[in-house]
Simulated scan of single mutants.
Amino acid sequence: MRAIRCNTYGPPSNLVLESVPDLKPKKHEVLVQVKACGINFPDSLIIQGLYQIKPELPFTPGSDVAGVVKAVGEGVDHVGPGDHVIGFVAYGGLAEEVIMPAKACFPKPKQMDFPVAASFMMAYGTSYHALKDRAALKPGETLLVLGASGGVGLAAVELGKLMGATVIAAASTDQKLERCAAFGADHLLNYTKADLKSSLKEITSSRGVDVILDPVGGSYSEPAFRGIAWEGRFLVVGFAAGQIPKIPLNLPLLKGASIVGVFWGQFAMSQPKQNLQNTRELMAWHAEGKLSPHIHKTFNLEDAPKAIEELMHRKVQGKVVVQME
C-alpha cells in the first residue's frame, strides 16, 4: 500500500509518498481502508518532533480517519468487513490502510460522506469534551473562542450556541470572522486590531467571560485571561501560535478562575464509554442538521504535505481533508 512517510523530523516538505507493507489487525484492532483523512494541527507538530507523542521514525502521520473495514482482529464485534466507519489514531492515517484501536472506531452515519466524516471526530470531539466535560458550560454563560475560524474553533462556536451560550469569536482577519458569523457567533473580535481585555469588558458590561477556549496560545492567552469572569474557566486546548504562554498565577487567584487542560485523545482512550456517549450526541446533532463541518479544501494523497503546510501557515478556515480517491 501507499503511505505518506516521515523519515526525518522537519517541515512538511520532508514528507514522502512510499510503498509500505500491508497491515494486519491484532486483537482488539480494526484494519480500515482509508477513504479520507482530516488534517489537524497536531499533524504539523508530530512531523517536527514537537508533539507530546513521538513515534519511532519512520512513521505515517494523520489521525482523523473515515473508511471501510477490511478486517477485524479477535474480540471486535461492533464493526465488521465492509462496514463504513469513522475513527481516530495517534498517527498512521495518511495511508491507503490504517490500523485503528477498536474502541476508537465507530460506525459512520449514513448521512455523512467520507470527507465530512474525516473532518468530524477530532474537531467536534475536542470542542465538546472541552465545553461539556471540562468547563461544564451552562446556558446563558458567555464563551470566548480564540482561533475561532479553525477546525476546533468553528466546532466550538457551533457547539457553544447549541449549548445555549453567548459566543464571542476571536480571529486574526475580518474574512475569518465572517465565517465565524455564519456559524452562529454573536460577537466578533479581530484580535490584531482590538485589545482583547477592553473589548471583552465592553461586550460583557464589565462582568467578564465565563469560559475561554484557547487552541492558539502565544501572546493572546494572557490578555484573554485578564477578561475572564469570577469563577471563569480557561480551557487550554493547544498552541497553534507556536508559543506556550506563561500565565501569572495571581490572575486565577484574583478571579477565582480555573485553568483547565483539554487532551481529548487521552480522554477518548482512557474513558471510552464517556467518549462514546459524547460521540453519539454529536452524531445526533449532525443528523438533525445542527452541526456542519466546513471543509476548506481537499487534497489527494500525493499532495498531503501541501495540506499540512497550508494548515501551518494559517491559510485554512475549518478543515482540510486528504482523499484517497
Rank of each mutant, 00 (worst) to 15 (best):
K176H: 11
W230L: 13
L188F: 02
L159V: 02
A156K: 09
S172E: 06
S221G: 12
S206W: 14
L154A: 04
F183N: 06
T166D: 06
R179A: 15
L196C: 00
K197V: 09
T204R: 03
G217Q: 07
G160E: 07
H187C: 04
L143A: 04
L177W: 07
A155M: 00
I168Y: 10
T166M: 12
V209W: 05
L200W: 08
G151R: 07
V145T: 11
S219A: 15
K161E: 10
P223R: 09
F225D: 02
H187E: 15
G218S: 11
F183W: 01
L137W: 01
G147M: 05
S149F: 04
S205W: 05
Y220Q: 14
I228W: 06
A181Y: 03
Y220V: 15
E222D: 12
G218T: 09
L137M: 03
K132I: 01
H129T: 07
V167N: 13
G218D: 12
N190A: 06
E158H: 06
N190Q: 10
S127Q: 01
E178K: 15
F183C: 13
I228H: 11
G164R: 11
K197N: 14
S221T: 14
W230K: 13
V145W: 00
L196N: 08
A181L: 14
Y128R: 05
K193H: 12
Y128S: 11
T166F: 02
T126Q: 09
G153I: 08
R134H: 05
V211I: 08
L144K: 05
E222K: 15
A170V: 11
G150K: 03
T204I: 02
T126M: 02
P223D: 12
I203K: 08
D195I: 05
L143H: 13
G160H: 06
A169S: 06
M163L: 15
K197Q: 15
K201I: 00
G125L: 00
S127P: 09
D195G: 03
S199R: 03
K138E: 15
